[in-house]
Design a protein around this nucleic acid. Sequence first.
DNA 1: ATGGCGCGCGCAGCGCGA
Length: 254
Amino acid sequence: MRLATWNVNSLKVRLPHLKDWLAAQQPDVVCLQETKTEDASFPLGEIEAAGYRALYAGQKTYNGVALLTREAAADPLTSIPGFEDEQKRVLAATLGDMRVVCLYVPNGQSVGSDKYYYKLDWLDALIAWLRAELARYPRLAVLGDFNIAPEDRDVHDPALWAGQVLVSDEERARFRALLDLGLKDALRLFDQPEGSFTWWDYRMAAFRRNLGLRIDHILLSPALAERCRACQIDIAPRRLERPSDHAPVIAQLD
DNA sequence: ATGGCGCGCGCAGCGCGA
């Protein structure tokens, strides 16, 4: 069982990359973020032709999440219960005895901004919800663009980024709160090279210089972490023409 | 490093992302 997450930064633009990548990596479950596609224009035919079912919660221009699965998923949810939000950032569904949650955590723009406080509130609601989900679903996988670099080793230049959005103490405390629920950061279950990142700015040749951040994550409940045999960032799609600025992350479970 | 890129929208140039 291979679980993956990828912020595609427009599903319409990235569809050729996505199809090639599905064929190459053969994931069983794929969480997509920033589809920027209304549901009426979701490319369901092409996804089905690639061998996947799809659930999606999109909106015009911004945000949007999708869940691609080999088998049909049940009990979909498209928001954090009790958290009123027009923005399409959440998609949860059940596959067999596993609950999968796809997230596009708010960016936060800059520390102290309205969007930053929206991000913190959103994360607080997420933590409370996932606490309940963990109690209900022992096999829980939470994948997505968290827009948080959890530790300094997840940042190419910690001094440059210190205190900025994506690395601030308040954001990192909320990421730790997710781990304190019992969720495991799948990539950190295994040794990784220094400078393992999932996002690189389009500007300044940041990818070539590996000036990146690790902000896309796969979190696994203890029962799933036990079954996790590998976790990798796949930087190959970031090398292509017109890439997403994010790379996919894949976890292999028994 | 503070912008340089790339996206959607819509047809110019802006808001947004991270």
